[in-house]
Design a protein around this nucleic acid. Structure first.
Lengths: 209, 209, 209, 209
DNA sequence: CATGAATGAGAGTTCATTCAT
DNA sequence: AATGAATGAACTCTCATTCAT
């Protein structure tokens, strides 16, 4: 009932949420602190009060995202009863997360392109945790004899590269189709189709004959 | 009388070259026209004289890159004598180009993340031409019965997603390895290894049983 | 129940003390209310509660200083039994105070340089009281025939100008000596030496032949 | 005849002049770059173009002042034919300069109070040159037997302390007189009177009996 | 062709101050 | 008596862009 004001946590959350959206749509540089303040309906100075500076806010936004995706993958994995299932769960969870939080792929790709210019170690660690999860699945499958030996990093980038690009280019592909529909740009590809395609491809490549 | 200067083409080329490097290292926003002018050793106003504005310069830089890669793929394809060969040539050429011009992947990923905010149709077309090339190869293989039916866009993103991420994250992965070498980050993966892995994976997924 | 806190006077004193230090080291403008709050270990708003605003706090700090120096001079004077003694006491007390509270000269000089921009009449009066004290001594000496007629303001500024500059530039002079010790910067001059020098100079100038 | 615009030197000089005035009246912190830009009738960015930043502009302002005063003292000294004359010339030149450029004393006192926080070595050196000039005069007098042995730093601060305070407090003293004219605040003291007083005092203190 | 001078419109950040509890 | 939350107004500095030569 409280006027929704003077609730530090709520205000902070609002700022983080709006920042997440804006950073993903426009990138770090092109998003101004004024933009974020306006969207969040708070005074600009408050952002500095809570997050010290623009980079600090950005780091918190990113960490939040990685931690969230990590948690989802972990919990999905718990419901699995085979290693192949776990691989599927990893891909499905990632694809669904990326679709649901469509700002995430853009942020991630940009961040990787920058070689992590904007963020502290903390974030780097968050990112890495997700990769290690996949790594474990692949090694487990290998030990069990269901997967051949692989290079986890390559598998990882194949999965997230494909998914992230599909999500992030969705508007671009829609535009492409309007201009020229002679070549299928997969403009209407759903998260499910992408999941299935990526899973099948990766699975075939890991198959033990 | 003028020594080494006053050669319009050379000056222009110098600017383009320095701009390419700077844009790839720092991104569009973080690169200033002053940066480029200093690196190129020309007066800032000259850049406007030649390229109209920053976006114009950027567009020329990007178009140049796409046209170059397109040309290389086309000529590599000419030396092939099977469709599978053509697929291999596409992947190999792309991977080698990306390694050689390591600024390219960062630029491309950033551009795709932005949904093409910075650039005109021209660039968009250049990008698309490369995709259509792959599309043709896949359709040809399908007609010949050597590939199963596929979604070219997904295949395309799987190829370039993997390669671009591998190249662009190279410094990051090296850093990761220094911190924690218990998980293989493929820090030393060569262009050849990547090519082979990507080709085999894609081939298996297209295989007609 | 409240431990060490909730003692209004102690808290106020703490704030005044920290403010004095900070104002003297960094000046009025460069000292922030946040600085003072942090150093004093109190909430920023409390400073406004007690002192109304930054200028109010500053005024109290300054008045405290002038009142203290005034009191010291008055009591030193009481122990004198000749007018020449009184002049000596004035100079000695001032010099010792300035050395002991080395933030004071900086504050005073800055304040005089600003033509008293920051402070209310109250402060102005406090400052003036000290001058009037000297003025009385000089006039008394004149009446007694031990001093020639003088311009008290000039004598006053000669005394406090010399002393304040010596104290306030101490770090600067030390630094100067490290760079170039060919010219004596009086880097180690003690309060006593300065007192003696100033007193002798002033006395000679007032001497009745 | 040129529109007075697009003349770099003139523009730069204008900025320096206005900055000098503003810095002296309001101090470094309280003077904004906008103030200077408005007074100089130039765009704010131009100030950064020429002086890099606010501190850079300030440093140039200060160096200019010290160099000017140094030059004046040097040339005045050349017209002297006794060491006592030289001492008089030093004091007179300094006093006249301080009166003519009344912003100078405030700037100097503030700077000394800050222990030179705002400025680079360059400035420090400029300041020191003036002191060394006096030092030479005193030593020469000592060698010639016309002055007793002294501590140049003390003599120097006695001279400039008195003069600077007299100039800088002129408005304050005028105000004091309006409030209470029972004590002479020397509100109308001229540069000449001050020169004479300071010279006589210093001379007496250096006199060989 | 080429350049130094100049500008307008912001961007990030700081800070004195107030509000609500 | 004391505090965390919130704000408005500035301030320094940057940058794409244009002008005049």
């Amino acid at each position: 009932m409280s006027k929704t004001k003077r609730d530090a946590n709520a205000t902070k959350a609002k700022i983080l949420q709006e920042a997440r959206t804006l950073f993903s749509v426009k990138g770090f540089d092109a998003t101004t602190v004024d933009d974020i303040a306006n969207s969040s309906d708070v005074n600009k100075a408050l952002i500095y009060y809570y997050f010290k500076n623009k980079a600090g806010l950005y780091a918190q936004v990113m960490s939040g995202l990685f931690d969230a995706i990590y948690d989802e993958v972990v919990s999905a994995r718990e419901r699995c009863n085979s290693t192949t299932d776990e691989l599927y769960a990893f891909i499905k969870t990632y694809a669904e997360y990326a679709h649901k939080h469509s700002y995430f792929p853009a942020l991630l790709l940009r961040e990787l392109s920058d070689s992590g210019a904007h963020l502290p170690e903390m974030m780097f660690a968050s990112m890495r945790k997700v990769f290690i999860l996949l790594s474990e699945i692949l090694q487990k499958g290998e030990r069990e004899g269901v997967f051949i030996k692989s290079t986890p990093m390559l598998v990882h980038f194949m999965i997230i590269g494909t998914i992230n690009l599909m999500v992030t280019t969705a508007p671009l592909r829609k535009k492409a189709m309007e201009i020229d529909d002679s070549v299928d740009s997969c403009a209407e590809c759903s998260a499910d189709e992408i999941t299935t395609y990526v899973f099948q491809t990766i699975q075939k490549s890991l198959e033990v004959k």
